[in-house]
Design a protein around this nucleic acid. Structure first.
Lengths: 358, 358
DNA sequence: GTGAAAGCGCTAACAT
DNA sequence: ATGTTAGCGCTTTCAC
């Protein structure tokens, strides 16, 4: 049903040549048209309900101005603002954005799976991605998360599509990748705790083997080192169960808490981890932040709803998306973009769990 | 840079006619080609890095197989799974999805504004939407939220684009609209409380003038009526400050709680409202669910992280998206779809805040 | 200032 | 089984 009324129709009805109509209707006022004619033609076009065929225009002009964004289904909740950032940036550059969700074949451990509705659809896996990509009228490709399935990378390369990723899981990057500077973020969080005179700072994290986990741990140690506080391995608490969202408390952390009544600060690897941690503290009769200050990472929406509201390192998701699109655009325009990580700094959002407002 | 290598190139290199190449490369194996030739041609095509021009194909075939999804920036966090549902449904029908975020000109009160990063971009408002829509090569239009700016509807109508909305705010619908059955949802929640022998059930809501608010209130009353429990207006607590996410407790609710020590159940209009409510209860030394059972609405991610984890009416977001696409597809195919609401039933997710697991 | 015509890359007749 | 050709709707020389 699209593009029923064509330039020819308008030209006939207006009693002018088809080319004139084209000129009259051009986005930026074409100089070579009598403004009266233009007005008249525009009127007729409106009347007829003319809609330019984007498809014909694209064919003719060899530019489609669209990029494809591939989003793994499982991470949607997470990368949502990043998608929005990419949208916004694309929009500003006159690009359209196509979104293709794809099912993630294991490997990438979803943090949101408790939520995963049983979508019966055969949404593409990385494998079928190969073929489906061919169908996409895009000038470039943005992949969110788990871009590093070698098959996907290979597929994209074969399509000769400029290709940028946003990912903080893979240890090794095969394409230009935009990522939150997790190390700097953890550092910010721990420095904040140190500035509150906390010295026995525990790190509560997961055993998930991911780049961001490694980096956050490094950030923690770096902050301590800079402050001249000795690193104590006993303060690193690893909870293997952090992906189980239904858990109220982590057994590992409970044990740790009982054994170390001396800690005065906790850096949580993720907000999601902070929720059970706060519960444990409450159950233990400890007051946050009076007895113990707690900092999270991500600043997801729930950080605000926790009790007390959680101080957290905010992921610059929106910026991640914008940067990724920017880099992609460079690639599309033929500038060379190096394979490697482009770090985006997060910032600290202070709330009551660290009560800086003394 | 798209579509450099054409059918002609492949045909020349393979020493066959251009039509043969077209047939050989057709998505579904064309019967009229020697399979050997096909194999050979495919090889050559691969070698040359041939990518079909979607744009030419679309022009030729008069079907673009894409729908446009317009998402108001502010509600992204909310409608995220709905977008995914629409994606999935579209994908299953061989449709692509274009996403266009648009800035919402006030009127629609964002629930997420605390999060709103200062995106400097001039992402389209409803007004510029008009023109921008013309540029979108879509066969149909899905609008998420606030579709009822008359200008937007008018614009879409003038484009003669099939048009479906997902919205639970507008009181009056101007286009086919898919929406959660909030009344049934509230009913589920309240019936659950009643089944736990709660009889003094408060309704804590906002003063937001929206369809879903009205409906949830009606659902609350309907459940009470069915159970033969007299409706007590004094148990309706309206907190004008429910949109302020930084608030730890609602003054209105605090007052109410102090004045009514007899209540034994609370139905919260939204999970977001439940967070401060739970805090107030905790501060008042009341135990949930022993003393008071609490039910929320939406079942957003935070429901799981609250303490105790919140029993909540889960919005069928994914299904909302799927249904909306389904309806849109009908419209695209020329079937008539009535202007009106298509209700999708939510379901109750029981957690510890109502401790049904005695 | 305006019209005629070529051609973007593809597919579907219509030949052969 | 394969080649030739017309034409989808548009923009852009090139004439006038």
């Amino acid at each position: 049903m699209a593009g029923r009324v064509t330039l020819a129709d308008v030209s006939k009805r207006a009693g002018v040549g088809i080319a004139t109509v084209s000129r009259a209707l051009a986005p930026q006022d074409h100089p070579d048209v009598n403004s009266e004619t233009r007005a008249r033609i525009r009127l007729v076009a409106d009347e007829l309900g003319y809609r330019p065929s984007v498809t014909a225009r694209a064919l003719r002009n060899h530019d489609y101005r669209a990029v494809s964004i591939m989003v793994p289904e499982e991470t949607w909740g997470w990368f949502d603002p990043a998608v929005r950032g990419a949208f916004a940036a694309a929009d500003e550059s006159g690009y359209r954005t196509l979104v293709q969700p794809f099912a993630n074949p294991g490997q990438y451990s979803p943090r949101n799976d408790a939520r995963r509705a049983g979508s019966p659809g055969r949404s593409s896996t990385a494998a079928s991605l190969v073929s489906s990509l061919v169908e996409v009228p895009a000038e470039g490709l943005l992949i969110f998360g788990s871009a590093y399935d070698a098959k996907v990378v290979e597929a994209a390369r074969r399509l000769r599509l400029p290709f940028v990723a946003i990912d903080d899981v893979a240890h090794e990057v095969l394409v230009p990748t935009v990522v939150t500077d997790s190390r700097a973020g953890a550092r910010l969080g721990v420095e904040h705790l140190l500035s509150l005179d906390r010295r026995k700072i525990a790190y509560v994290g997961s055993d998930y083997d991911a780049y961001y986990v490694k980096e956050r741990r490094l950030g923690y140690r770096a902050a301590l080192a800079d402050a001249g506080v000795a690193f104590d391995p006993a303060l690193m608490v690893t909870c293997p169960d952090t992906l189980d969202e239904s858990l109220r408390v982590y057994p590992n952390f409970e044990r740790f808490l009982a054994s170390r009544p001396d800690i005065d600060g906790i850096f949580c690897e993720a907000d999601q981890i902070a929720a059970p941690v706060l519960r444990s503290l409450r159950l233990a009769g400890l007051s946050v932040p009076a007895d113990i200050s707690v900092v999270g990472f991500d600043d997801e929406r729930a950080a605000l709803l926790l009790d007390p509201p959680l101080t957290s390192v905010r992921q610059p998701y929106e910026e991640l998306g914008r940067r990724a699109f920017g880099t992609l655009l460079k690639a599309i325009r033929g500038e060379s973009v190096p394979v490697g990580r482009e770090l985006v700094p997060p910032r600290l959002v202070v709330r009551e769990s660290t009560a800086s407002a003394t």
